[in-house]
Measured scan of single mutants.
Amino acid sequence: MSIQHFRVALIPFFAAFCLPVFAHPETLVKVKDAEDQLGARVGYIELDLNSGKILESFRPEERFPMMSTFKVLLCGAVLSRVDAGQEQLGRRIHYSQNDLVEYSPVTEKHLTDGMTVRELCSAAITMSDNTAANLLLTTIGGPKELTAFLHNMGDHVTRLDRWEPELNEAIPNDERDTTMPAAMATTLRKLLTGELLTLASRQQLIDWMEADKVAGPLLRSALPAGWFIADKSGAGERGSRGIIAALGPDGKPSRIVVIYTTGSQATMDERNRQIAEIGASLIKHW
């Protein structure tokens, strides 16, 4: 067993022997301040990774656009098919120029040779490549099948209805392509620590998230040296922004954090800054 596999296998073990965790309302004060600064709703939840206990939450059962955070769930569904012998990570998928959609920095470079399922998941999570996500959605049967996968996990809230990039439209009061912070946090925890996926697939999923290259201005910008984070960000229309993450000190994750916002007129930089400040408060009061 590799060191990384050992780390993920012992996530519940280490967490069980940690000192009790206590909620700190100071972080919620910052979440509410972010709402004021952005002029928009902000949803927040913080779960203990081992027990699933909610440590703090704000608007945990209000719907927010998922945006690209759905790509972690998508690759979880792909990995479940791999575990069941219905898919192979090494299978190569070929596609054409007509398949390319807006923001496809990886797939646009491989029109000639195609990409493997493993490479597509890596591109979808680490670079948020939209064509990679659409190609992977095709392998599982489309958005409705991802929703069905989530329902089978016990998540009857999260739903995907459309493809990239239309799913980022974020129309107010439109339930399409949305989740709730509580539902997303619980589902992410199941994917990373539950028995739904094999140990190898859980490790692969967290490795992809740990290698995320496009979430630097968010929670990662607030992390002290030595902290662990595996995350996936999302951005959408109407001032929408979000991030889902597993993080913790001492090089291992111990909490799940989900943050979503929508309806702001603020710039992307300002949305990023507010999420980073929430992260800084979380870490300060850990």
Results as ranks from 00 to 15, higher is better:
residue 36 D to W: 03
residue 166 E to C: 04
residue 76 G to V: 06
residue 84 A to Q: 05
residue 154 G to R: 06
residue 78 V to Q: 01
residue 121 C to T: 00
residue 165 P to Q: 00
residue 201 S to E: 01
residue 86 Q to S: 11
residue 261 T to N: 13
residue 179 T to G: 14
residue 105 P to G: 06
residue 39 G to E: 09
residue 160 L to M: 03
residue 187 T to A: 06
residue 251 G to A: 08
residue 82 V to Q: 03
residue 283 I to M: 14
residue 48 D to F: 07
residue 226 G to S: 07
residue 78 V to A: 03
residue 278 I to V: 10
residue 74 L to Q: 00
residue 212 D to M: 09
residue 58 F to S: 07
residue 187 T to I: 04
residue 107 T to N: 02
residue 112 T to M: 06
residue 246 A to Q: 11
residue 179 T to R: 13
residue 31 V to Y: 13
residue 48 D to N: 14
residue 131 T to N: 07
residue 142 G to L: 00
residue 56 E to Q: 12
residue 270 E to C: 14
residue 263 G to W: 02
residue 273 R to A: 10
residue 86 Q to M: 10
residue 151 H to G: 04
residue 226 G to P: 05
residue 98 N to Q: 02
residue 47 L to R: 02
residue 145 E to V: 13
residue 73 L to E: 04
residue 43 G to L: 08
residue 223 L to D: 08
residue 276 A to E: 15
residue 218 L to A: 14
residue 129 D to W: 02
residue 187 T to S: 10
residue 67 M to P: 04
residue 173 N to L: 10
residue 222 A to C: 09
residue 187 T to M: 00
residue 284 K to A: 03
residue 32 K to F: 04
residue 148 A to D: 10
residue 75 C to I: 11
residue 214 V to W: 15
residue 199 L to W: 09
residue 58 F to D: 01
residue 106 V to H: 03
residue 170 A to V: 00
residue 130 N to K: 10
residue 214 V to A: 15
residue 228 F to M: 15
residue 272 N to V: 07
residue 180 M to V: 10
residue 221 S to E: 14
residue 271 R to E: 14
residue 56 E to C: 01
residue 80 S to I: 15
residue 132 A to C: 06
residue 135 L to M: 06
residue 62 E to Y: 09
residue 95 Y to F: 10
residue 154 G to S: 05
residue 75 C to Y: 00
residue 283 I to W: 08
residue 155 D to C: 08
residue 96 S to P: 04
residue 254 S to Q: 01
residue 267 T to H: 11
residue 162 R to H: 00
residue 257 V to H: 15
residue 267 T to K: 12
residue 94 H to A: 06
residue 56 E to P: 07
residue 48 D to Q: 07
residue 168 N to Q: 14
residue 123 A to F: 03
residue 229 I to A: 13
residue 285 H to M: 04
residue 188 L to P: 14
residue 77 A to C: 06
residue 60 P to C: 09
residue 148 A to P: 03
residue 273 R to F: 15
residue 211 A to S: 07
residue 42 V to E: 02
residue 199 L to A: 08
residue 225 A to R: 07
residue 143 P to W: 05
residue 206 I to L: 10
residue 176 R to Q: 05
residue 123 A to K: 14
residue 114 G to S: 12
residue 190 K to Y: 11
residue 77 A to E: 05
residue 93 I to P: 00
residue 268 M to V: 14
residue 268 M to W: 10
residue 234 G to E: 11
residue 209 M to S: 05
residue 148 A to I: 00
residue 147 T to V: 08
residue 62 E to H: 10
residue 207 D to E: 05
residue 269 D to C: 13
residue 161 D to T: 01
residue 89 L to V: 03
residue 229 I to N: 09
residue 65 P to I: 07
residue 249 P to R: 07
residue 50 N to Q: 11
residue 108 E to Q: 09
residue 91 R to N: 10
residue 72 V to H: 08
residue 183 A to N: 00
residue 135 L to H: 04
residue 92 R to P: 08
residue 263 G to E: 10
residue 171 I to R: 02
residue 182 A to S: 09
residue 207 D to I: 06
residue 119 E to M: 06
residue 165 P to V: 00
residue 145 E to L: 14
residue 135 L to P: 05
residue 204 Q to H: 10
residue 117 V to G: 04
residue 261 T to D: 07
residue 67 M to S: 15
residue 81 R to I: 05
residue 241 R to Q: 14
residue 97 Q to W: 03
residue 229 I to V: 12
residue 188 L to E: 14
residue 274 Q to Y: 13
residue 55 L to E: 06
residue 69 T to C: 08
residue 200 A to G: 06
residue 39 G to S: 07
residue 219 L to E: 09
residue 162 R to D: 00
residue 181 P to H: 02
residue 217 P to N: 14
residue 24 H to A: 11
residue 161 D to P: 03
residue 215 A to C: 15
residue 204 Q to W: 00
residue 211 A to C: 14
residue 126 T to N: 13
residue 223 L to Q: 00
residue 171 I to M: 00
residue 234 G to M: 14
residue 237 E to K: 06
residue 217 P to H: 04
residue 210 E to N: 13
residue 278 I to L: 11
residue 105 P to A: 06
residue 175 E to I: 05
residue 91 R to G: 10
residue 281 S to A: 07
residue 172 P to E: 03
residue 161 D to A: 02
residue 29 V to I: 14
residue 58 F to N: 08
residue 251 G to V: 13
residue 117 V to L: 11
residue 32 K to Y: 08
residue 149 F to H: 02
residue 264 S to H: 04
residue 69 T to P: 09
residue 113 D to C: 03
residue 253 P to V: 07
residue 134 N to W: 03
residue 138 T to P: 01
residue 207 D to K: 06
residue 205 L to F: 04
residue 197 L to E: 11
residue 82 V to P: 02
residue 154 G to A: 09
residue 35 E to Y: 12
residue 45 I to T: 14
residue 58 F to L: 04
residue 241 R to D: 14
residue 234 G to V: 10
residue 94 H to N: 11
residue 41 R to G: 09
residue 252 K to W: 05
residue 136 L to C: 07
residue 159 R to K: 14
residue 120 L to K: 10
residue 101 V to A: 15
residue 128 S to A: 15
residue 230 A to P: 09
residue 27 T to K: 05
residue 58 F to V: 03
residue 258 V to L: 05
residue 240 S to T: 07
residue 138 T to V: 07
residue 156 H to W: 10
residue 46 E to R: 04
residue 279 G to L: 15
residue 151 H to K: 10
residue 78 V to M: 13
residue 177 D to E: 13
residue 151 H to L: 02
residue 223 L to P: 08
residue 53 K to M: 13
residue 140 I to L: 10
residue 140 I to A: 01
residue 190 K to D: 12
residue 114 G to Y: 09
residue 139 T to H: 11
residue 164 E to W: 00
residue 121 C to I: 05
residue 219 L to S: 13
residue 248 G to T: 04
residue 68 S to N: 11
residue 136 L to P: 06
residue 243 I to Q: 07
residue 150 L to S: 02
residue 85 G to F: 07
residue 144 K to V: 09
residue 170 A to M: 00
residue 206 I to S: 08
residue 76 G to K: 07
residue 209 M to T: 11
residue 26 E to S: 09
residue 225 A to K: 01
residue 250 D to W: 14
residue 68 S to I: 05
residue 83 D to R: 06
residue 239 G to H: 00
residue 94 H to Y: 07
residue 249 P to C: 08
residue 211 A to K: 15
residue 207 D to H: 03
residue 257 V to I: 15
residue 263 G to Q: 03
residue 144 K to G: 06
residue 100 L to P: 06
residue 187 T to W: 00
residue 79 L to K: 02
residue 106 V to Y: 05
residue 217 P to V: 09
residue 193 T to N: 05
residue 233 S to N: 14
residue 244 I to Q: 07
residue 54 I to F: 11
residue 108 E to Y: 07
residue 197 L to Y: 07
residue 113 D to A: 09
residue 134 N to Q: 01
residue 241 R to T: 14
residue 271 R to L: 11
residue 271 R to V: 14
residue 129 D to T: 02
residue 126 T to F: 02
residue 255 R to N: 09
residue 152 N to H: 13
residue 262 T to C: 10
residue 251 G to T: 13
residue 274 Q to K: 07
residue 29 V to D: 11
residue 70 F to Q: 04
residue 65 P to E: 10
residue 79 L to T: 02
residue 179 T to V: 11
residue 176 R to P: 08
residue 202 R to P: 02
residue 236 G to W: 14
residue 164 E to S: 11
residue 122 S to G: 09
residue 135 L to F: 04
residue 30 K to W: 15
residue 123 A to Y: 09
residue 199 L to P: 08
